[in-house]
């Protein structure tokens, strides 16, 4: 057994923080992705342009840089905006908030592309049919489009989830106490970099396996109807 020199608890705390940040970024990123995908598919040229700027910008810049920018820059920006709105109390953007925002934005940019593809893959005929039998636009979207988009987007979203989970390690650079930084504390204290980074690597690997399992489960659920169809055919 590997000797963790009493740092096991600290690593567990870090792992929990990593999981929290990943889940927040995923939840925010999925909503953001749907929104931006709709912008990119809208008739408005301005919305399409804004959507394009967002996805190109965030997909073209390293996440490390985005995190650093948010950590250093967002506070000043947020507070100056708040002050012009007449809000005088100080608003803090912690390493946690900066990391969550940066990763949510990155998740959103990748997810937008996945959702755009998925929206386009829903047959137009179905939407026309739904409208023809008198479903409202909103109902058509919620009842016909979204469930299918979810099914089509799931594999892509699963991949993004795995990428973002690993990128949470970068928030350690601005001092968030997630798994990577807790590992560094252990390395500083014990001078055993190989041991602890390897342990951390296997924790990430474990998280990856769990995430892959959950994705597979969600996919098989979303594909229920399709699996039966194929068997009957």
């Amino acid at each position: 057994m590997i000797d963790l020199h009493g740092f096991g608890g600290l690593l567990a705390e870090g792992t929990w923080m990593t999981i929290r940040v990943t889940l927040i970024a995923a939840a925010a990123g999925v909503s953001l992705g749907i929104g931006v995908a709709l912008m990119k598919l809208s008739a408005s040229r301005l919305l399409r342009f804004l959507g394009e700027v967002y996805t190109t910008g965030l997909r073209g810049v390293p996440v490390l840089l985005v995190i650093l920018l948010f950590y250093f820059g967002a506070i000043a920006a947020v507070n100056s905006v708040a002050r012009t709105l007449g809000y005088t109390e100080f608003i803090d953007v912690s390493a946690f908030a900066a990391g969550c925002i940066a990763l949510s934005l990155a998740f959103g940019a990748y997810a937008a592309e996945v959702f755009r593809g998925a929206f386009q893959a829903v047959p137009k005929g179905q939407i026309e049919a739904a409208r023809a039998i008198g479903l409202s636009r909103l109902k058509t979207f919620v009842k016909i489009t979204l469930p299918q988009v979810w099914r089509l987007a799931l594999p892509g979203l699963g991949n993004i989830f795995l990428v973002i989970m690993k990128e949470t390690a970068l928030i350690s650079v601005v001092g968030l106490d997630e798994l990577m930084r807790k590992t560094q504390f252990a390395v500083d204290y014990t001078k055993k970099p190989f041991t602890f980074y390897l342990v951390a690597a296997f924790i990430y690997l474990g998280l990856t396996i769990v995430a892959m399992g959950v994705t597979a489960l969600l996919e098989s659920r979303a594909n229920r109807g399709f699996a039966i169809d194929r068997r009957q055919a």
């Binding site: 795995l162 970068l170 990577m180 190989f194 980074y197 690597a201 990430y204 690997l205 990856t208």
Partner: peptide, 13 residues
């Protein structure tokens, strides 16, 4: 292993 762990850890390793 290489796809399941953060690149930052790989560099540090």
């Amino acid at each position: 292993f290489l796809r399941g762990t953060p690149l930052l850890i790989q560099i540090y390793l």
